[in-house]
């Protein structure tokens, strides 16, 4: 087990090294940079700035300078904000994490419950309705669903604020502040949940249907166990196993931000920050954030594999 973890950690370092080459290479090879982008600057001023930011050096040298700093946890300064990338990210990432974690929680809960019910009553009215509903929810583009929901709940009914994270000009503190954020979170979380729940429901339904046809379910029934025990103890536990791998992919998504949804609801998340950095070619910020996601992906994959071992006895002992 120890040797396995050490080997996996070594692979992780190699993977991340490859990822860093790709990430830096792609951004460095894109023509134009933060300085070229600004038409108000004179040529002399541009040359001066490029020297200051180190943009005049050869690509390979720039890569190793960047990598050397990155290894020490320093991803450089955002050109646009003139702040360290790490502190900038930590300001925005938690906002994204807030809505992403809430919607992930709801998505999984709803998907598991609906998936199990519709699998145990395959081809019933409920099952057909859910299958069609899941398809419909999946097919909505997020900008359309978002705007529609703003129109209904914020404009027509006036139940929830249409955007932002706090009410403009509000100085609420303590519990009042928490309530305000929850009030603002509601609509973006609703959109994200709606978009995610379809595919996950179908996933759980298929998994459950497959498990429920297995021999050991027949044994459980032949033992005279209650149908509830058969479904929730014997079937669901087995159906949840492959979902652990899926959970591994969710972790980067929790911090990755939802670009379109955040934009529509004007949520100060990292997705919006990322979009802005793109249009201004704020490369240090872009590279830092992409690298951060790469690290998260690799770590969560390792975590998922280890968790799988805990949950499935057949993997545990190998």
């Amino acid at each position: 087990m120890k040797a396995y973890i050490i080997r996996r950690l070594l692979y992780m370092v190699l993977t991340l090294f490859g990822a860093s080459v790709l990430i830096f290479g792609l951004y460095a090879l894109t023509p134009g940079d933060f300085v070229d982008n600004n038409p108000k600057l004179t040529d002399e001023r541009k040359a001066e700035l490029k020297q200051m930011y180190g943009l005049d050096k050869p690509v390979v040298e720039r890569y190793f300078v960047w990598l050397g700093n990155a290894v020490r946890g320093d991803f450089g300064y955002s050109l646009q904000y003139q702040q360290p990338v790490t502190s900038l990210l930590s300001q925005y990432i938690w906002n994204s994490f807030l809505i992403a974690s809430a919607s992930t929680l709801f998505t999984w809960l709803i998907a598991i419950v609906i998936g199990v019910i519709s699998a145990t009553r395959q081809y019933s009215f409920f099952d057909s309705a859910v299958t069609i509903g899941a398809f419909a929810a999946m097919s909505f583009p997020s900008f359309f669903a978002g705007l529609l929901i703003i129109k209904f709940f914020a404009v027509d009914l006036g139940w929830f604020p249409p955007g932002g994270m706090i009410t403009t000009g509000s100085n609420a503190t303590g519990l009042a502040y928490v309530w305000e954020v929850i009030d603002h979170m509601f609509l973006p979380v609703l959109v994200l949940t709606m978009l995610g729940v379809g595919s996950l429901t179908r996933y759980f339904r298929t998994n459950m249907l497959e498990i429920i046809r297995q021999d050991f379910i027949r044994t459980a029934r032949a033992k005279g166990l209650k149908e509830k025990t058969v479904v929730y103890k014997h079937a669901l536990r087995n159906a949840l196993l492959p979902a652990i791998t899926l959970l591994g992919f969710e972790l980067p998504a929790l911090f990755g931000g939802a670009i379109i949804t955040e934009k529509i609801f004007n949520w100060p998340g990292v997705g919006q920050l990322y979009m802005q950095a793109f249009s201004l070619r704020d490369y240090p910020l872009l590279m830092g954030f992409t690298m951060f996601l790469a690290i998260l992906t690799v770590v969560s994959n390792l975590l998922a594999d280890l968790l799988y071992g805990v949950a499935d006895p057949r993997v545990r002992l190998k």
């Binding site: 050991f216 005279g224 949950a311 006895p313």
Partner: peptide
């Protein structure tokens, strides 16, 4: 009645028991 008055065993013992319990 099942498992109490009438019990049953099956053909494939390998797949007839729940792998995670």
């Amino acid at each position: 009645l099942r498992g109490n008055d009438i019990a049953m065993i099956f053909q494939e013992p390998m797949s007839s028991l729940n792998p995670v319990l």
